[in-house]
Amino acid sequence: MSLVSEILAGRQLPAVEASQADADTSATSLAGLRVGDEAAVTGFAAAAPAATTRRLHDLGFAPGAPISVIRKAPLGDPIVFRVAGYEIALRREQAKLIRVDA
């Protein structure tokens, strides 16, 4: 039996390749949503580091999970999302990595 950390590090998460237009406007990522919007996670940007996506997944941003945008900080960053029944703040930089279906 290998170490649990190795099993966890070996997890694969769906990568969603964004079209060029989407990547420019971040329209299909969490960062492109407005306060009050709701969407469901479809996957992660292909360019996102694997360790980052695995952590975002463990925080509740799993494919299929419904997300709503609660509020933005005074300067528009970070952003508070509601996911899996709780609220969590992410920076735009990370929010951009999460693809949604909206």
Binding site: A51, T52, R55, P78, E87, I88, A89, L90, E93, Q94
Partner: peptide, 11 residues
């Protein structure tokens, strides 16, 4: 270094 994610729960 590697860019690690920033997240913070709002209890």
């Amino acid at each position: 270094g590697p860019v690690l994610p920033f997240y913070m729960e709002m209890p």
